[in-house]
Nucleic acid binder design. Structure first.
Lengths: 130, 130, 130, 130
DNA sequence: GTGGTCTAGACCACG
DNA sequence: GTGGTCTAGACCACC
């Protein structure tokens, strides 16, 4: 499980953990039944307090993306395809809406904004294609 | 000066103020030499604590988008066209990049992402056209 | 805000807090816009650590039953009638299902179980009617 | 001896074991003098840690529903009819009381609550009738 | 003043 | 060994 924490971003560590794990579940980097790293291991690896990790895991559990097996560990839940799609769609809408609003407020016309968006898409995509 | 504060967004109020004023300077809703509303007036109008406005103004001043004339008030600075464009471009790149990255990580193909972006653009645009 | 904590029940304190506040929101003992007691006050009143209360509040916020106004406090969110009803119905189904299952496993016939249920209902109801 | 373990319910496994065996004794699926499966066998069958089964058996022994014959095994105790009935009644009262209280607190009228209860009863009953 | 975050460390329940 | 809970206390951001 590959996580990167930015201690200077101002974003709480536990939220960074939540977001990244959620992302990996969405993109199936983490699949149903996969075990998450133990609280203590992940805490040691990221050099943060175990409770910080525990807190992140608790929220993921409340979201039902992750399940506890008591005394054993945490595992990725089965997420129904429909629910997954809804979460994805919502996430996407949010971020694209934010982008569109900014473009409009800056007075950038639609096609120009779309071009920049495409450029960004292709750049990132080509860099991260495997 | 027209500002809207969303108390439920989680975004700090002073940042909402900063962003909106910055936006207005960018789009020339506020022009060089225009005077900003006084801290007290704006605070009263938005029903927030004056310190919140004061803080926002300080940041705008640090950004050199605004100048303090002691004893008189705050005024929009002269911003060179080139610098303005660079700020705009950078802002736009940042937000569109973030959107693109999210789309890619969720495995959304380019044209699908573009479609959603356009939809968001048009929705917001039609709602806010004056 | 009236909360009772049972330190000996084995149920985590923060969950007791969550459940009771949720209950009060459901039953409109706490209404939209009402401010929750501050973390520190409630912690002092219940004689627990503020973080325990904070944790409870965080989960309620994640559930969107409660909203933060930064620097001011926490307030009961507007909950759409439909969503409220769904939450209520689910809660009710869960607890009545558990009751029914137990009755069946003990070999209690339906009408006998219903009679006991009615008795319990009336007893509690008459005690707590105002 | 037929037991079902739900790893996702959050209820400790040893408690699930206790409850189900107790249930079977109540309903006379297990009768006086019947031998319980050995700790090892049951643990292997349920694929859980033997200590978990051992712990469950200890509680049943403490409850005097079961007796240890050293070197031989565990056997279902003689339970006086009266005591059995009292245990049953108490269990039933507890769970039905909890259900009634919840219904009342949610403002559900008696007959509506009863209807839902009956529905739950019939659903579960028809599914598990043999 | 408000709530949020993080830490260090203790203790508990479960397997 | 696993995760969960709670505490005490520090520091931060916001209003």
């Amino acid at each position: 499980m590959l996580l990167e924490i930015d201690h200077h971003s101002g974003v709480p560590i536990y939220r960074q953990v939540i977001r990244q794990i959620r992302q990996q579940i969405m993109t199936e980097g983490l699949k149903e039944g996969d075990q998450l790293e133990t609280v203590r291991d992940l805490a040691a690896k990221l050099k943060v307090n175990p409770m910080t990790i525990s807190k992140a895991y608790s929220f993921l559990e409340a979201e039902e993306l992750v399940e506890r097996k008591r005394g054993i560990g945490l595992f990725v839940s089965k997420v129904k395809k429909g629910r997954l799609d809804r979460i994805k769609a919502k996430l996407l809408d949010t971020v694209l809406n934010r982008a569109a609003v900014t473009a409009i407020q800056l007075g950038i016309p639609e096609d120009e904004a779309v071009e920049i968006f495409k450029k960004q898409y292709r750049e990132y995509d080509s860099q991260n294609r495997r």
